[in-house]
Computed example of a mutant assay.
Amino acid sequence: MSQPSSWPLPSGSSRVVLPLQLTRQLARHALTKHLYPLAYGHYVDAVGHHVERKKHTDHLLIFCHRGRGYFRTAHAEGELKAGQLLLLPSNEAHTYAASTTQPWSIYWAHFQGTSAAACMDFLDLSPAQPVLTLTRWRQLIPVVTDLLNLQTQRHQFTAAVVAASLLQRIIAELPRLTSTLQVPTEFDLAALERFMYDNSHRDLSLDDFAEFAGLSRYYFSKKFKQFTGTSPMRYFNQIRVKIACQLLDNSADSIRQISQQLGFEDPYYFSRLFKKTMGMSPQFYRQTITNQRG
């Protein structure tokens, strides 16, 4: 297997590399041998991400959902922008990197299988044209989320079989997501919620969420409140407070460090928001949890 990049993982990013013994089982099993993952992950705001491989033993799929990057092979080179997917076949030497000014956020997967080489034809791609533009990619976020959530069970064969089936489904869905015939009038709340969790370390605005949903600011706010009963920004801040509670429970990081991890430049504002949401300060919350454990 080609070694995945060793890019340092910041908050919100993840990388799963399946053990060799497990991938050998997947290569033999009737349900998975035609296509199965070797490694997969999600890199958020991948500053400094750069990979160069002269030998490449498996197939690699990279989908950019924010920012941009660049790629080069013996047959093609170009830019990979938000909403575009790059498929690099095995035995294709390549280089790719995040933009220095707008570093990409990407979902990626290394995969193999007896049918892996057929993916290029299935997606109507070629070594000279390896990029696919997906206009409705957000519909796949729940499936991608299910795949990423399997990382805690990655050493279990049954979970690996599920991971293979999810990867197969993702690839199977790609052609229909290139259509521009449908104009979105609603949005996928599950996909948006995943976007909020993935970007809980950033100070996002209403415009960022409306852009992700593909809707105008006004229409998005209206529809979001109809679905959830609250505003997008309050919903996002509730998610960040929920993550803060987990960090207060399970880490020794200071309140300032936790606030910075969650994109709050002002720790006092973070503390006020936490108290407004939880009814107590972060300090008192941590002390209460500690006393309960004692």
Rank of each mutant, 00 (worst) to 15 (best):
S2G: 08
Q3T: 14
P4A: 03
P8C: 08
P10Y: 02
L20H: 14
T23N: 02
T23V: 14
R24A: 12
R28I: 08
A30Y: 08
H34D: 13
A39S: 10
V47M: 11
H56E: 12
H65V: 08
H65Y: 15
R66W: 11
R68P: 05
H75E: 13
E79D: 05
L80H: 05
Q84H: 13
N91Y: 11
E92K: 06
A93R: 11
Y96E: 09
A97G: 09
A98S: 15
S99P: 03
P103N: 07
W104Q: 09
S105T: 01
Y107H: 14
F122H: 09
P127T: 06
A128S: 14
L132P: 01
T135W: 08
V144N: 06
T145C: 06
T145F: 03
N149I: 05
L150N: 02
Q153L: 15
Q156H: 13
Q156L: 15
Q156R: 14
F157W: 03
T158L: 12
A160S: 05
V162G: 00
A164I: 10
L167G: 00
L167F: 02
E173H: 08
T178V: 14
V183A: 08
T185E: 12
E193Q: 08
R194F: 08
R194S: 06
S200P: 01
F212Y: 10
G214C: 10
R217Q: 14
Y218H: 11
Y219M: 10
Y219R: 15
Y219I: 13
F227I: 05
F227W: 00
T228P: 02
S231K: 04
P232R: 00
F236D: 01
R240Q: 12
C245R: 15
L248E: 00
S251V: 03
L262F: 07
G263P: 00
F264T: 02
D266S: 07
Y269M: 14
F270S: 03
R272N: 12
K275N: 09
T277Y: 10
M278K: 13
M280P: 12
M280C: 15
S281C: 08
S281R: 07
T288S: 14
I289L: 14
T290N: 13
